[in-house]
Amino acid sequence: MAIIGIVYAMINGTMEDVNQALFESADEAVTLVIGLASILIFWVGMMRVAERAGILRGLARMFRPIVQRLFPEIPENHPALGYILANFSANLFGLGNAATPMGIKAMEEMKKLNQSDRASNSMITFLVINTSSITIVPTTVIGIRMEYGSLAPTETVSTTILATTITTVAAIVIDRMLRKRRERRST
């Protein structure tokens, strides 16, 4: 991406803008990580308490039938399932801040199962569900709509939920198809 951008800037004569953007974005990334650090410290700490208290395990056991089908590689009652569920539920309620640390912990647990620097099947499934977004209440968008005087700021909630559901299901199906193809190739 960076190569395309720089080469394009050479042709387009926008080198000055690129220079400026380079350092501005680096700065922005540091600020973003500092913002992330506060929520990561808080939620990873909190989730550690939850894990010790056995809450994650309990959560994993409760929803086992559904999650087990999505993530067949993860053993029963493994803490990874608890973190995955915590991430999904935080996402559902639009709590993106809380969802990220839980998702990262889920990834860590899945890495322990996998022990390689290559993405495992469960990781791909997990991230694909995350990227297709599973929010019920898109709070930011509602906020913007209200700001610009919408008569019904929440009227797009139904269309969003519908679109999200279809996309997520499609993502899972595509992921499954590609996984089958991968497995066929490796055998």
Binding site: M1, G5, A9, N12, A21
Partner: peptide
């Protein structure tokens, strides 16, 4: 996380600012 995020954000910034 910082190096990963910084790398990606800089790459995107270059792509945007260059007009590509």
């Amino acid at each position: 996380l910082l190096p990963f995020l910084l790398g990606m954000m800089v790459a995107i910034a270059i792509l945007r600012s260059s007009g590509a």
